[in-house]
Structures are given as structure tokens and as C-alpha cells.
């Protein structure tokens, strides 16, 4: 096989597998930028996958399914926001509980939905014109889901908002120095609520992608640990929407490669590569000069209370 076919294949697969990772990571980036860690991604994705499937199967419309996934992700995230922002509960424990709850609930409510072929999956698209560009065309614009393109677009938009608008400054201020933000009249709680819920919405869609696009069927546990990869990707991407694209693609490519290269390397060792790789990359980054942008939001994980530091 020539290298072009190889490259086209790998990039195509990296996009397909990386799409749910990207959506969920973008959401988590925003939540964490505002200072709230949400370890409940896995649970929100599982619920998103179920709701998307059930709705798409009932109504025959995959977009309604994705909308349902969006909604359920948002509602679950709201619960997390209520506990961590209003009740100032420990974010790690609340997120873990959310994962437990989401995985359990999706399995419970999903009984009876397994073993059914989705009657209305969201088809992949090929973008006419762009797809005929040599190399890049078949690599990026052929036979991919609309959600892949939306995800890439969303990453760009979220990057601009975060780094080039007043809203972005507000969100970052809330994550870096909530006290100072509060002092200049920013409603810290509101910003945190919005960012956490946004994270939930996107995680829900990520789950929906799994059950109406990636593998149009529902089975319990179909999020298969992706939610944890997202937590890692968020840090790997230095809390930056565009770097999240790179991270999601890299993880997608490495995952797919573990099946391509099986003949030569033990697959378990290939599977641990993305994880080991993430550490190595961060270590190399650490060797370089300190960059403010690369660091975690200073108030990450800490509840904000007026008058306390």
C-alpha cells in the first residue's frame, strides 16, 4: 500500500474516532476554564448515547436524537453545577458520582433498546468540490460525519470566544481569580453554571454521536471509557479549544493505529501508547519555558466563596 492511501486512511479514521473526543473535550475545556472540573463526562456520554438512540429510533429523526442527547447532557451537568457551585461540594467526588449515576441509569433505562438496528442513522457526507483536492480532499472531506465538521467549526468558534472576546476574558478571569472577577462585578456563579452546562451539552452530543453515527445501535457501556480519555485530553490540550483538535486527532490516530500495526507490535503495548505519550508530551512541554497559557486555571477545582481566598 502506498503512503498516500495509508495517510488518507489514518487521518480519516482519526477524525471519525476523534469526533466524540473533540466535542466532549471542548465542553470540558470551558468548564475547567471557569474553574470547575467535571469527572462525570463518561456518565453524561452514556446517557447522551441512550437518549439519542431512543429518540432517533422512536421519531425516525437522528437530529432529534442528537437534540435529546444535548438536553440530557445539559441536565446532568446542571446537577453537577448545583452541587459544586451552589453547594460548593467537592468537584472530584461530585463528578465521580455523576459517572456512576449516568452509567447506571443508562444501563437501567436502556433495557429493551439493545439489539435493535437504528432505523435512522445520521449518514456520512462527502463535500463536493473540496473532496477532489488531491490528498487533502479524500483525507478530510470524504465520507465523514457532519458532526465532525461541526466539531471542528465549534473548536474554532470556541477558541475565538475564549481568546479574542470579552466573554473569554470573563470566563478565564472566573477560573483564574474568582475573587478579582467578583470585585469587578462579574457573577462568578452564573459564569460557572453556564460553562459547566455547556460542557454537559457537548458531552451529551459526543455520546449521541456514538449511538446515531459512529455505531448506530445502543448497547450498555458503549462509551467504553472515552469519558476518561476526555479528562486527559483537556489537560493535554492545555485547556485550549484548538489544541483539543490536535489532541483528539492524535488519540484517534493512535487508537486506530493499534489495529493497523498489530502484526508488528503487541496490541496491548500499542494501546498504552496514547496514555504514555500524553505524559511524555507534557514532560517535554515542562522542559521548555513556563507559559502562562499552558498552565491550569489557578482556581481549578476550588469552590468560590466571597471574602475567602
Amino acid at each position: 500500500m502506498d503512503w498516500q492511501t495509508w495517510l488518507i486512511g489514518i487521518v480519516g479514521r482519526a477524525l471519525a474516532y476523534g469526533t466524540p473526543l473533540l466535542w466532549a473535550t471542548l465542553g470540558e475545556v470551558y468548564a475547567e476554564r471557569a474553574g470547575v472540573v467535571n469527572l462525570g463526562i463518561e456518565g453524561m456520554m452514556a446517557m447522551g448515547a441512550l437518549m439519542a438512540f431512543a429518540t432517533a429510533q422512536t421519531t425516525g429523526d437522528p437530529w432529534l436524537g442528537l437534540l435529546a442527547a444535548l438536553a440530557v447532557g445539559g441536565v446532568l451537568a446542571l446537577l453537577h453545577a448545583f452541587l459544586t457551585v451552589t453547594l460548593r461540594a467537592n468537584q472530584y467526588v461530585s463528578g465521580l458520582s455523576l459517572t456512576l449515576l449516568g452509567l447506571g441509569l443508562s444501563g437501567l433505562l436502556g433495557r429493551g433498546w439493545e439489539g435493535i438496528a437504528l432505523r435512522a442513522p445520521l449518514p456520512n457526507v462527502t463535500i463536493p468540490g473540496l473532496a477532489s483536492i488531491p490528498l487533502l480532499g479524500p483525507m478530510l472531506f470524504q465520507d465523514e460525519s457532519i458532526l465532525t465538521y461541526l466539531g471542528l467549526l465549534l473548536a474554532l468558534v470556541l477558541w475565538i470566544v475564549l481568546w479574542r472576546t470579552r466573554w473569554g476574558i470573563v470566563i478565564r478571569a472566573v477560573g483564574e481569580a474568582p475573587g478579582a472577577a467578583d470585585a469587578v462585578g462579574i457573577n462568578v456563579a452564573l459564569v460557572r453554571y453556564l460553562c459547566v452546562v455547556l460542557g454537559g451539552l457537548l458531552a451529551g452530543v459526543a455520546g449521541g454521536y456514538l449511538s446515531v453515527v459512529y455505531r448506530p445501535a445502543w448497547t450498555e457501556g458503549m462509551s467504553a471509557g472515552m469519558g476518561w480519555v476526555v479528562i486527559a485530553l483537556t489537560i493535554f490540550a492545555s485547556w485550549d479549544p484548538l489544541q483539543a483538535v490536535g489532541g483528539a486527532l492524535l488519540f484517534g490516530a493512535l487508537y486506530h493505529l493499534s489495529f493497523r500495526l498489530q502484526q508488528w507490535v503487541a496490541p496491548e503495548l500499542l494501546k498504552l501508547m496514547p496514555y504514555a505519550f500524553a505524559i511524555v508530551v507534557l514532560a517535554f512541554v515542562g522542559l521548555g519555558k513556563a507559559q502562562r497559557r499552558r498552565g491550569a486555571p489557578a482556581a481549578l477545582g476550588l469552590p468560590y466563596v466571597r471574602g475567602e481566598r
Binding site: Y17, M222, A224, S258
Partner: peptide
């Protein structure tokens, strides 16, 4: 059981 692994 692993849909993503089976798919890739």
C-alpha cells in the same frame, strides 16, 4: 465486547 475496537 467493544464496539469502538471492533469498528477500528
Amino acid at each position: 465486547y467493544s464496539p469502538p475496537a471492533a469498528k477500528e
